[in-house]
Amino acid sequence: MEQALNPELLFELKILWAAVVAYVLAGSLAIVGVLLKKRPERTVLACMVAGLALHTYSLGYRWERLGHGPFVSMFEILSSNVWSLMLVFVLCYWRLQVVRPMAAVVMPILFVMMGWLMTVSPGETRLPPTYHTVWLFVHIGFAKVFMGFTLVAVGLSGIILSRSTVFWTAKFQRLPADDRLSELSFRCLATGFVFHSLMLIAGAIWAQDAWGRYWDWDPLETWSFITWLLVAISLHARLAFRVSPRSGAWMILAVFVAAFLTFFGVPFITKSPHQGAV
């Protein structure tokens, strides 16, 4: 409770809450738009950009206040991931006009993360000794881009899967055919694969410097590699078999679940070096 009285923390949280309100407004409008077959896309984009600007300010303020980036506690990791996922999604929303209604699928996933963010302690943190390296930024940056592209692929896959019902087929009627959406989701996954590979390389460089080994099968490394394998299997399956859009969509969901559990589950159930516990 002592931390809640800290006026600087309160200010930071107020800005963050304002950002979350803007995100929720954007997501709600996107969902209502799909249900009512309207396209309030400019308003949705404006709300998302406003939320992103507020969120950027909140994260920057915390960074300046604590002297390190949002990489340590669950609050910081969730907040910075919501920010990076929103950033990648806003860029895709801006550039891929035809598939903008996928915001109705993507935003609820982000709502879950925002809800989780609201429940964890925003207390002050210290950077572990091995986190004072540029490779931290490179490694985490690539990971965030991977997650962003995978989230967009999940949005497209969600549309494909929801079209199995008459109700949602009608709601997503104006969107391109499933095979075209599937091809786009494949592109997003393939792009994400490149960034996941870069993340593993940057992580290995960091691990070599931080712990004297580039790979040690610690829980986070193991699950990151499992996620990489799942992406490789999904991409190879499209070459080896004639994968239907629905099957491809399920594969992307499996990749996302594995990636989500790796990023947000594994670091907090182990005492591996990734947690900075050594």
Partner: peptide, 18 residues
């Protein structure tokens, strides 16, 4: 090389699906 490969593949068709 992987990035180069995907770049070549994906630049053949526009990203915005018709």
């Amino acid at each position: 090389a992987l990035g180069w490969h995907f770049w070549r593949e994906f630049s053949r068709r526009p990203w915005n699906p018709a």
